[in-house]
C-alpha cells in the first residue's frame, strides 16, 4: 500500500495524464523519493496503485537509470562522464573518488553515505567536469574540490 503522502502525490500527478498507465514512472519516482529505493514491495505497491501488473511496471523500472532497484546511499552522486567532462578530466575525478573516498561507479560506500553512478552529459559543459549530488549541481571539479563538496553531505 502507498502511504498517505505517497498517495496524495500520485493523485496530484494523475490529473496530468489521461491514462493511469502513464503514471508508472511518476509512481516509481514517488515511492523512491519516500523510501530511498524501489524494493520489490515498493514496486508492487506502485503497480497496484495504478492498476498495472507488477511485471509490466518492472519492465519500465528496469529501463530508466534514475529509478533505483537496489538500495542506494543517503546521497546519490551522478558523475558526468560525457565527452566534454572526459576532455576536462573526469577520469581523474573517478580515480580520486575511488582512492580517497572509497567510491566506485555503481557502488555504495562502506558507511552507506554515497552511491556513485556515472551519468550521461549533465548539460553544464561550460563548467566541466561536473557532478550532481542529490539535486545540487557542482562544476569545475578537481580532486580537491570533489573532497570539499562531498564533505558537505552527511
Amino acid at each position: 500500500m502507498l502511504s498517505a503522502d505517497e498517495k496524495r502525490e500520485l493523485d496530484a500527478e494523475a490529473a496530468h495524464y489521461r491514462d493511469r498507465r502513464a503514471l508508472g514512472i511518476e509512481a516509481l519516482k514517488i515511492v523512491q523519493r519516500h523510501r530511498g529505493w524501489i524494493s520489490d514491495a515498493a514496486l508492487g505497491d506502485a503497480a497496484a496503485a495504478i492498476g498495472l501488473p507488477p511485471a509490466e511496471l518492472e519492465g519500465v523500472a528496469s529501463f530508466y537509470n534514475l529509478l533505483f532497484r537496489r538500495p542506494v546511499g543517503r546521497h546519490v552522486v551522478l558523475a558526468c562522464d560525457g565527452v566534454s567532462c572526459w576532455i576536462a578530466g573526469c577520469e581523474r575525478l573517478l580515480q580520486a573518488a575511488a582512492e580517497r573516498h572509497g567510491l566506485r561507479p555503481g557502488e555504495t560506500d562502506a558507511d552507506g553515505r554515497f552511491t556513485l553512478l556515472p551519468v550521461a552529459c549533465l548539460g553544464a559543459c561550460d563548467r566541466a567536469p561536473v557532478a550532481l549530488v542529490d539535486e545540487d549541481l557542482h562544476g569545475n571539479l578537481d580532486p580537491e574540490r570533489l573532497a570539499e563538496v562531498l564533505a558537505r553531505y552527511g
Binding site: V83, S84, A120, C121, A124, C125, D126
Partner: peptide, 11 residues
C-alpha cells in the same frame, strides 16, 4: 530532455 553530450543551451 537535453542530453546530447556537449549540449547546454536549453538549460
Amino acid at each position: 530532455d537535453e542530453m546530447e553530450p556537449g549540449t547546454f543551451k536549453d538549460r
